[in-house]
């Protein structure tokens, strides 16, 4: 049984349908990435998993149970953390408050101090800047905070939307390393949205490629990377 399973998902904004009969599955303990050009519907899929957008048809299952009619807070409580695009830290709150908010759900609150220690171990810079307002952090630090905040809920599945956008290469390498460690050391399942195809597939076990709201390629990351269709999607030529 896959950890996360999307089945024949249709998503619309008003009358405009943006996702068409999309099905995909993410296995427990893997890293998967969602790829596709701008506007292909990657973020929409992420948002429907956590209930920020409600699908018109189809089903979303997590650990074998339907979650697509649950309120967002219950979805989160079941073990999904969602790191939104553009970080979305709470700018007028301290770093610590941001992290503590991450453990608002009961599953995180129960082990709050352990998680905090774990996050500070992963991102020592956050420990140093605990009292600083989140809005005053650099872009890379804000991204670390956003990820750390997601980890505070002790998720089984981590959804990360475009984490590398606008970051310096050195920070990107650091984050890549963190994702790998989370996956390796904690067995965390990660679903990632990314524009940089090579980097994303390089760190993932499996890749999914979207085009105009439809899933066009899926498979093991290496195969996807080498497939002819990938070039068609991104370069528009064989």
């Amino acid at each position: 049984m896959p950890l996360l399973e999307l089945e024949a998902l249709d998503v619309c904004y008003g009358d405009l349908q943006v996702i068409w009969a999309l099905s995909l599955a993410v296995e427990r303990g893997t890293i998967a990435c969602l790829l596709g050009p701008n506007g292909s519907g990657k973020s929409t899929i992420m948002n429907s998993i956590t209930g920020l957008v409600r699908p018109r048809a189809g089903a979303i299952r997590f650990q074998g149970e339907r979650i697509d009619r649950l309120p967002t807070y219950e979805i989160i409580e079941r073990g999904i953390a969602h790191v939104l695009e553009r970080r979305r830290v709470f700018p007028f709150m301290s770093v610590l408050d941001n992290l503590l908010l991450g453990s608002f759900p009961p599953r995180g609150k129960a082990k709050r101090s352990d998680q905090l220690a774990r996050v500070f171990a992963l991102f020592p810079v956050l420990a140093q800047r605990q009292a600083q307002l989140a809005g005053t952090l650099s872009g890379g630090e804000q991204q670390m905070l956003a990820i750390g905040r997601g980890l505070m809920a002790r998720p089984t599945l981590l959804l990360v939307d475009e984490p590398f956008l606008g970051l310096a290469p050195v920070v990107i390498r650091e984050l890549l390393d963190i994702f790998a460690r989370l996956n390796r050391e904690e067995g965390m399942t990660i679903l990632l949205v990314e524009q940089n195809v090579e980097m994303a597939l390089g760190m993932s076990h499996r890749g999914f490629v979207l085009e105009s709201g439809r899933l066009v390629i899926q498979g093991p990351a290496r195969e996807v990377l080498e497939s002819v269709e990938l070039r068609q999607v991104f370069l528009g030529r064989p």
Binding site: T72, Y73, E77, R88, F90, M93, F104
Partner: peptide, 20 residues
């Protein structure tokens, strides 16, 4: 804290698992 979070960014607060 949840209330302040909702005031600053309701969507981000939602994915923190806050029953908005």
């Amino acid at each position: 804290r949840a209330l302040r979070a909702v005031a600053q960014d309701p969507e981000a607060a939602l994915v923190m698992g806050i029953p908005i």
